[in-house]
Simulated scan of single mutants.
Amino acid sequence: MKETVGRSVGMLSNLIRRHFSTFSFHGTLSGAQGKTLHFILARGQECDVFQKDIEEEYSLRPPTATKLLKDMEKNGLIYREAVPYDARLKRIVATEKAMQYQELIHQSLEETEDRLTSGISSQDLAVFFRVINQMIRNMS
């Protein structure tokens, strides 16, 4: 079978998704929730995070992001609150419960990144990022 970019990216995507599906703490936090929570916590309390930011960060469609955030809200990981400058906007805020997972999430993401890049030189990684970013632009 001929090697293609789409097939290779798909295979890697499936392997990463499978790896993150094992990323769960007491059944409360899925891999997608962990990555999203990491994004929210990394932005800090000084920077508002909205659903649109999560959609853009992970290239999610609005219904997918809505379901993800509803599940996180149901699990007590986030809540949404109106911002004073626009009643239509709801910023996403991590709860105290979510903050208990911060170090575990960070550690898991770091280990995954180390595993993905093991044995790859910084020069090869620079080429990879240049190429993958062009592919992302091509598909956008």
Rank of each mutant, 00 (worst) to 15 (best):
N14T: 14
P84C: 00
S8T: 14
K52W: 01
A65D: 06
L69S: 09
R130A: 10
A82Y: 03
G6W: 06
E81N: 08
L69A: 09
M72Y: 00
I92D: 08
Q45I: 04
R43P: 06
I92H: 01
G27V: 02
G119E: 02
N138Y: 13
L68N: 10
K97C: 01
I78W: 04
F25M: 11
S122P: 10
G76C: 07
K67L: 09
S24H: 10
E56Y: 09
G34H: 04
L60Q: 02
S118Y: 03
M11G: 11
I136H: 09
S121I: 03
F50D: 00
A42K: 15
T112I: 04
R61G: 11
T112F: 03
S121L: 05
S30I: 05
G44K: 01
Q51I: 09
L60R: 07
F129W: 11
L60G: 07
F23E: 01
I54L: 07
S59K: 11
K74L: 10
S59C: 12
A126M: 09
R18E: 14
L41V: 08
E103T: 13
S21C: 10
V49D: 07
Y79A: 00
K74F: 09
G34M: 01
K70R: 15
D86G: 02
C47F: 08
K67H: 12
T22M: 11
M1R: 13
T28N: 15
L77Y: 06
L60P: 11
K2I: 10
E3S: 11
G76A: 02
A82F: 02
V131P: 06
T66H: 08
V127N: 08
G76P: 08
R61L: 11
A42V: 05
L12H: 04
M11D: 14
I136Y: 06
P62I: 00
T36H: 04
N133D: 10
V49A: 05
S59D: 13
E103L: 07
R130L: 08
F39K: 01
T28F: 05
Y85S: 14
L125T: 00
T95I: 03
S121A: 05
I54K: 06
I54D: 02
I92Q: 05
K35D: 02
R80P: 12
Y79L: 09
D114I: 01
V131I: 13
L125K: 05
F20D: 09
A87Q: 14
E110N: 14
G44F: 01
K67N: 13
L15G: 03
E110F: 04
T112G: 12
M135G: 15
Q134Y: 12
R88S: 13
G10W: 05
F128S: 05
D86W: 02
A42G: 09
Y79I: 07
C47E: 15
K52H: 14
T28W: 07
F39W: 02
Q102D: 12
E96P: 11
T28Q: 13
T28Y: 04
R7I: 06
T64H: 13
L37N: 12
G27P: 09
C47I: 10
T117W: 00
T117Y: 00
K74T: 13
T66N: 14
F129L: 12
S13Y: 13
L125H: 00
A87H: 13
C47K: 15
V5A: 11
